[in-house]
């Protein structure tokens, strides 16, 4: 899948051809740092005065790279498509090589950051179980009531919470069977076919 770069974006990135490769490398480092930790506008001013250009140009350069990296990571653009996509920028070979290298090195981490931002449902984290037999209670002495206590750990947008549930032997067996069947369903022809074709 090719990345469609807009003209404005191309303009912003064009600045990178006017500086040395080591400066571009520094720009890449800064933009990747911003993606991971959030941006820090103070850095634009410092870099701009060092390079003798205005802060806005630096900002556009860094943001252009951030956009390039995040969009390609989002779409999981492969190596060849990435090279083809940035061809339209008219960069020299070594600069393209550097961008590709930086992209491939950081793609996994950027995707990780992006997936953290995505909408998430309460997610299973862990299950602890315990087997008890109720022997007596205030209202009834001499009873034998096997109980399985379950502590369910659920992760919900970074926070963990636990819930204590209980069940009886026949429901435990039932639940195990139903969920085991659910697991087998993924191996069914129907599911495999869909997964293969997407």
């Amino acid at each position: 899948m090719l990345l469609m770069l807009e003209d404005e974006h191309k303009e912003h990135l064009a600045f990178l051809t006017s500086v040395g490769l080591d400066v571009v490398q520094e720009f890449c480092k800064i933009s990747l740092g911003f993606i991971k930790k959030g941006s820090n506008p103070k850095m634009y001013q410092a870099a701009a005065s060092k390079l003798g250009v205005d802060a806005e140009t630096v900002m556009h350069g860094v943001e252009g790279l951030m956009y390039l990296f995040t969009e390609s990571s989002k779409l999981m653009v492969n190596e060849i498509d990435f090279q083809d996509s940035i061809m339209t920028l008219g960069f020299p070979e070594d600069l393209k090589g550097l961008l590709l290298q930086q992209y491939l090195e950081n793609r996994k981490e950027i995707r990780c950051i992006l997936s953290e931002m995505s909408m998430d449902l309460p997610q299973y984290h862990n299950l602890e179980w315990r087997f008890d037999v109720k022997l007596a209670s205030r209202s009834l002495k001499h009873q034998i009531d096997p109980t399985i206590l379950l502590k369910l750990h659920i992760a919900d947008s970074g926070e963990r919470h636990t819930q204590v549930l209980q069940t009886d032997p026949s429901n435990l067996v039932h639940m195990t069977n139903v969920l085991d069947k659910a697991l087998q369903e993924m191996k069914s022809q129907h599911c495999r076919r869909i997964v293969r074709n997407i």
């Binding site: 989002k74 779409l75 999981m76 995707r111 992006l114 997936s115 931002m117 995505s118 909408m119 109720k134 209670s137 205030r138 209202s139 009834l140 009873q143 009531d145 206590l149 379950l150 204590v164 549930l165 209980q166 069940t167 009886d168 429901n171 039932h174 639940m175 139903v178 969920l179 659910a182 369903e185 993924m186 599911c191 869909i194 997964v195 997407i198």
Partner: peptide
Amino acid sequence: LGSVSHNPPHIVDVDWRLDYYIKNNHVDKV
């Protein structure tokens, strides 16, 4: 009388649904 006591919620059944998570607004090809 045996049912008169304080219990944690008692699981009586389970439902499931299988989805194939394809993409979201931040990430493609999940």
